Simulated assay, not measured.
Amino acid sequence: MQAPSTVVQLALLVLLVLPGITYQFVRERRRGPVPGERDLGERVLRAIVASIALDAAYAIVAGPALVRLAKAEAEFLAARVAGATVLTGRDATREAVLDALPSAGWVHFACHGYSDPANPSDSHLVLHGQAPLRVVDVSRLRLSGAQFAYLSACDTARTTETLSDEAIHPAAAFQIAGFAQVVGTLWRVDDAVAPSLTQQIYTDLLSSGADTAAAAVHRTIRALRDRYPNLPSLWAAHVHFGA
């Protein structure tokens, strides 16, 4: 097995095998080590296989719940924004989103996000169907009526150690397209916390106007930080771009 050559590759390898390593550890603690399984390469392979199985099980079990959470975000906003165009389920395709963006002053995405460290322009939001909404797709747009975009997804403002001073991610793409204010995330967000955080930000934002989006995000994050000071992973990922 070739050793990882970068920090990103090493981190991806750790994330890939961590569930399987945990499984192997618990398994050996319960029944003891097996002489034929002491080879490091074989144990890593077993950890990877176990990780794939565990990740697949998580997707099957948690998938419907995550869809319900995203739908709850859409329903919350639709009830508070008159005339909102709502695209959920089979309606939320790349083509439908691109068609709707030119007439939208505010946009909100509640979906999965994917960051591609090797090719940041291919980072994207996962929509229904086979075609995602990529950074390059959004950055090519010129939206004169754009005002505010909220990307409630993982890694929408993530950079890499090789491009740490360059902003190539979905949040930046929406700014390039014309959105003066964008809310994104620096890393993977907690699926249970994100909808509640979204509701609090919009409750503040809709009561004070779009020109205070930065303040709305700041106040909401500060309140969550005060409540969970030792858990920055819950509140520190969300950031505001623009003015």
Rank of each mutant, 00 (worst) to 15 (best):
R94Y: 11
S51G: 01
L66R: 07
V86R: 07
L141G: 14
A70R: 04
A100D: 13
A177N: 13
A223K: 02
V61M: 10
A56R: 08
V193D: 05
G41M: 01
A56F: 06
V138E: 15
G41K: 00
A11M: 12
L234R: 02
L141A: 13
Y58R: 02
Y228E: 06
S115R: 14
I60T: 05
A59I: 00
I52P: 10
G184E: 13
G20A: 05
L54V: 04
A236M: 05
C154G: 14
L234F: 13
R46G: 09
V183N: 12
P232V: 03
A50V: 03
Q181D: 09
L10S: 06
Q24H: 04
W187K: 11
W235S: 08
P102F: 06
L77V: 00
Q9S: 11
V14F: 09
G20W: 02
E95S: 00
P19W: 00
A53L: 03
A84F: 13
V136E: 15
Q130T: 06
R43C: 02
I176V: 14
L231W: 08
R225S: 08
V193K: 07
T88Q: 02
A216I: 09
A78D: 14
Q147C: 10
D226H: 13
H238N: 09
D137A: 11
A11E: 14
A215G: 06
T93C: 01
L205N: 08
T185Q: 12
L77T: 04
R46W: 01
V193M: 12
W235L: 04
E28Q: 08
A173V: 10
A82R: 15
R188I: 03
E166A: 10
G105Q: 03
D91W: 03
D226K: 10
A192P: 09
A215F: 07
A59D: 07
V86Y: 08
